[in-house]
Every structure is written in C-alpha cells, then in structure tokens.
Computed example of a mutant assay.
Amino acid sequence: MIFSLFLPSFGVHQPGGWGEPRWVGYWRGIYTHKNSLGNTASFALLMFAIFSKYVVKSTVFRRVTLIAVGMCLFGAASSTGLIVALVMVATSIGFSLLLNARRGTRPLILGSAFFFIVLAVVAAIPTLSVVFELLGKEPNLTGRVPIWSTLLPWALERPLLGFGFSSFEQAMLPRYFALTGEKLVNAHSGYLETFISFGYLGLAILAAVLISFVRNVVYLLQRQSPYERLLLPFAVAIYVGVLCSNITESFFLAYSSIHGVIFAIAYILVAVSRSATTASVVQRASHTKSLQLAVPQQVPISARK
C-alpha cells in the first residue's frame, strides 16, 4: 500500500512498465503484476479478518492491517483475488458452523453442501455472461478462454507424461507468440499447466494430493481432534482458495508462489493433526483395554462349584 500511494512509479502499473499496457493505473505494490498483489491480499484478508485475533493482541494493529489489505485488494482490481477472498472467508465461517453439528452428521452435511454448491454453480453458468457485462468484465475471463482453447490441443500432443517441468516457455510460448503475437508468462490455469508439464500422470498425482487432503479433513471431522475450531476452518479455506485461484492463474507449479507454500502449510496442519488424533485414539483404546484386564473378573458361583 505504501509503494502504491507514495512510490507510484514502482507500486502502480506505468505505460512503459513491465506487463500489459491495459493495466496502467492499477496497483501492484511490490509485485510485478496486479494479479499477484490481488491474490496475495486475498490470503491476507482471510487471515486478518478471521484468524488474526488468535495471534495478534493489538486490536488497532489488526484493524489497520485489515484496512490496508482491503485497499490493496480493491486497488489492484483483481477479480480473481476478490472472488477468492470472499470464497475463503465464506468457507471458513461455514466450516466453523459445521463444527457445531454432531460428529456423525458432519460428513453428510459437508457432502450435501458441496453437492448443492456445485449444482448452484452449474445452474448459474448460463447467466455468467450477463453478470460479467454488469461488472464490466469480459465474458471470456479477460482473454483466458481463448488461451486455453489454443494451448489444449498442443498439450494433447504429449498427453501421458507432458513436456516436462517448466517447459511452457520452450514448448508453448514460441508457438503461441507466432500465432497471436502475444507473449504469455504461463497458461493462466494451474490445472492446464500441470497437464502441459506432466500430462495425465501429473493430473493424477495432483488429484491424489487434493483427495488426500479431503480424506484427512473428513477423518478429523469424525473424531475429537486438537484445535479443530481453529485449524480446520483455516486449512479448508486455504484449500478452497487454492482450488479456485488455480482456475484462472497458474500457481501449482509457479516459482516462489505463496499459494504453493500456504497450501503446503495447510496440508501439513491437517496431516499432523490426523496423526496426533490417531495416536490419541490408539492410546485411549490401549488404556481402556489395560483397565479391563486389571479389573478382576467375577467367577459365577456355579463355575466355582
């Protein structure tokens, strides 16, 4: 925010600066692009709006930082960052409410909510073009849909193992530049870029990691886990945010990506919590069995005779 307000030659897109000319005047802060600022601010909004009260004692500091984060989010005018921020905040609040339900019903409620959300998204797809026009946005997601339709047939030339890690610049960029005259930094989709780099094998590994995260969360929902009211809403909100942000941006394989780091932290949190919960369950079961063995069994009178 300081760079954007007081050092605009660095913190705001300039006509001769790096990046697309159409972003002139938008905030980018210390980042090279407004979308980087918007996506980083989305995670900061989640942490300072919902979870900072558990860590930061100063109410003034929390509120000032939250205002600064909000200014960066709106100054960057990153639609992806704003949508992801709202989705993560809503997810964390909804998951906190879910924890008030009985443990046996939690997975059912979570599965039903996911089903209705998917149904609502599918039903809303026909009206998205109208919504984009009202917001002043392009229906093709700021040119991303044409990029995907161009890159996907090329990616299908090596569908099993892909072109290799960090191969976008060598395998895709020259062909796309020769066709359109536009230089791309990435595929603008983490899922598509994973497919380009590692093919179906990469997508299968990515799906296995994402499904493993869900399994850990469901396991914790069914059992008494430590710090669940803080850990689970935070980790699940991060998970949903990473899933959403990678639809329109390439973060899974990006260098120095805050998304990759924060998703790794969320995964470690739920994995360690599951291990601790499992150890606690085993310990309680062992303790109960020891007590049962220690209590002398009553022999029936008929058996004594």
Rank of each mutant, 00 (worst) to 15 (best):
S257F: 01
G25T: 04
L141F: 14
S52I: 05
Y26W: 14
L160V: 09
C244L: 12
Y219K: 12
S257A: 09
F115Q: 01
I196L: 12
L201A: 15
Y267W: 08
F3K: 02
P153R: 01
R28F: 09
P159Q: 04
S112H: 03
L293Y: 10
T80S: 15
S9K: 08
F132R: 03
F251C: 13
V64R: 03
G162W: 06
T142F: 14
Q222G: 11
L151T: 03
P126F: 07
Y200V: 12
F116Q: 08
V60L: 10
G143I: 14
G38Q: 05
W154I: 14
R158D: 08
L82C: 01
W18M: 10
R63F: 15
H287S: 15
A90H: 04
H188C: 07
A101S: 13
G136H: 01
L110S: 08
L161N: 07
K305M: 12
I205R: 03
V122D: 11
T180W: 02
I196A: 03
G111R: 02
Y239E: 03
I238Y: 05
Y219W: 14
V240H: 04
F213W: 06
S79Y: 00
L192H: 01
A76R: 04
A266Y: 03
H13T: 08
V64Y: 02
L7P: 01
G136I: 07
K305T: 15
Y191N: 02
T277L: 11
T150M: 12
A49G: 08
L37N: 08
V24L: 04
E182D: 06
W148T: 05
Q283N: 15
K183L: 14
H13C: 04
L98E: 06
Q297F: 11
S250V: 06
N246T: 00
I125N: 00
Y26E: 13
E133P: 00
G162E: 10
T142L: 12
F116L: 11
S225D: 03
S286G: 10
T32M: 15
F213S: 00
T278H: 09
Q283F: 12
P21V: 04
A254E: 10
V217P: 10
R215A: 13
F6K: 08
R215H: 10
V12K: 10
A68R: 02
K53H: 14
V56F: 14
P153G: 07
A123T: 10
F251K: 07
G94A: 11
L243H: 05
P226W: 00
F10N: 09
A44E: 08
F51Q: 09
W18E: 06
L5G: 02
F252G: 08
V242N: 14
S286P: 09
Q170R: 07
L161C: 02
S197D: 09
L98M: 05
M71F: 15
S286F: 14
F116S: 13
E138P: 06
V69R: 03
P139C: 05
C244S: 13
